[in-house]
Amino acid sequence: MPAFLNSRAMRDGAAQTAFVGALVLLVGIAIVTARANLEAQGLSAGFGFLERATGWRISFSLIDYDTSSPYWKAILVGVLNSLFLGAIALPLATLLGVTVGVMRTSGNGMAELLGTVFVEVFRNVPLLLQLLFWYAILLSLPSPRDTGLLPGGIALSGRGIYVPGLNVTGGSVFIAILLVLAAAAMALWLKSARLVSAPPRAVRRAIRATWALGTTAAVAALWIGRIPETALLSIPVQQGLNYREGIRISPELMACVISISIYGAAYIAEIVRSGINAVPKGQAEAGRALGLSSWHIFSRIRLPLAIRIVMPTMINQYVWLFKATTIGIAISFTDFFMVISTSINQSGQTLELIGILMGGFLIINYSIAWVLNRLNDAIALKGTQLRI
């Protein structure tokens, strides 16, 4: 018997190497077989088609796009649309879900009843059915010529919802958002950092100064990015059979936001409720013994501990909700999935485009999970006590 077989580490390494080699061999055979089949059908393989013009329109885009744009730009439009939808729907689902979850644990009979009805109705109706329901309602709104502006310069019509907007470039908006997020991150760091030598009043002043500096820089970025010869604020104005100026939110986007937010909120409410109920009663009793009010016990003790308990489950829910953005294809919202589907029909590059779709969702969802897992590690209680 060879000497290396007497070593367990060597045997394990050899077995693992053989297993990985077999997987690589199977993948290689699959690629070669697929390429041969495509060549036999007269189809070309590879990603060269990404430079070709698409020749079809996209109804909603956050960047410039026309029929002469290449496939890679159409795919980028789809990715940005999905990210935009997720960036709106997930925070709304969280805010509504936390509110309903708190209502179900408030001890108030009416609030608990309303929260229970919300959860049982929207959790048990399929998401696709809810999407079609809200889309039908939005399309049934009056035409623009039969509607008037609501307070705040908002107009509701069957062609979309019109809201006030800013006459600024997209790059300036992106920079302004980054500045606000940077100010928020700095404020959270100042609040959570153990600044032993600094008095609490100095810390509060530093936080206020951080917010003021970040807000001022964001406003300056928007002002610098203002479109020449236009007012900074654009208010919808009724002209003829439609509205001009302002920002139009399409019925497709609005229906996706509403359905995903409400459906996700029903699940998040149950997660939050279970987390609040899992907090040991002794924690609240200790707060009462110290003379804390009911609000302080909830906001300083029960809710922070509940967040630590439910964070792993919430991460899984956020990943699932982002994957749910693909339902937009049912009402022709041009998200990542719909752009890939249309590209497959137009170009015939099925394997390449499905690979791009899978890789794109893998990167996005892994990034969401990675960031939230780092947040979970940061807020976890240290030491040997329960990590709640």
Rank of each mutant, 00 (worst) to 15 (best):
A212N: 07
S343K: 06
I331Q: 01
R387L: 10
I75E: 00
R387K: 15
R52M: 08
A18H: 15
A330S: 04
N124G: 03
N316I: 06
I207W: 09
A74F: 11
I137D: 04
T326Y: 04
F118S: 03
T384Y: 08
G282C: 05
Y162Q: 10
N81M: 14
L188Q: 15
T54D: 00
T342V: 10
D146G: 06
L232T: 02
L357P: 04
I249W: 15
L357C: 08
V98F: 08
I247R: 07
Y135H: 01
G28E: 04
A53Q: 13
H296D: 14
E39I: 13
Y318S: 03
A221S: 05
T325K: 08
A53I: 04
T116N: 05
L38C: 10
T67A: 09
K382L: 09
L50K: 06
L375E: 10
L23V: 15
A217M: 09
L178G: 02
G13K: 13
L381N: 09
T216S: 14
Q349F: 14
G158E: 04
F118N: 03
I271A: 03
R35S: 12
L357D: 03
E352M: 10
V121T: 05
T105D: 00
Q349H: 15
M186P: 02
Y267Q: 07
L253I: 14
Y366C: 07
L96H: 07
V24D: 05
L233F: 15
L303T: 02
I175G: 01
I331G: 01
E229F: 15
V98C: 06
I249N: 09
A289N: 05
Y135T: 00
S347A: 10
W211V: 10
T105G: 00
L213T: 01
L305I: 02
A187L: 03
L178C: 07
R204M: 12
S68R: 13
L351R: 14
M186F: 12
F118G: 03
L375T: 06
A187M: 10
V77P: 03
W295K: 13
I227F: 05
G160W: 08
G165T: 02
G291I: 02
L26Y: 09
G21P: 10
D12V: 14
D377H: 14
P2Y: 00
A40L: 11
A9K: 13
E39W: 12
A369I: 04
A202T: 15
G21N: 09
T230S: 11
I58N: 02
A286L: 05
L190S: 07
I327S: 00
P151A: 00
G383S: 06
L156Q: 09
V125T: 02
L80K: 11
A286T: 03
I388S: 13
L127A: 01
V168K: 04
S61C: 08
F174L: 13
F60S: 08
I175M: 11
G109W: 11
R302S: 07
V119I: 04
R35K: 14
Q317G: 01
I356K: 05
L305P: 01
A14I: 14
L62K: 12
G328F: 07
V257M: 11
S341F: 11
W56A: 12
V117P: 04
G282K: 09
L181N: 07
L156G: 03
P304E: 00
N167P: 01
P200N: 02
A330E: 02
V77W: 07
L351D: 11
F174R: 12
Q317T: 00
V102H: 06
V100D: 01
Q349E: 12
L292R: 09
V27E: 00
P144K: 00
A89W: 08
L372M: 13
S68Q: 13
P236T: 00
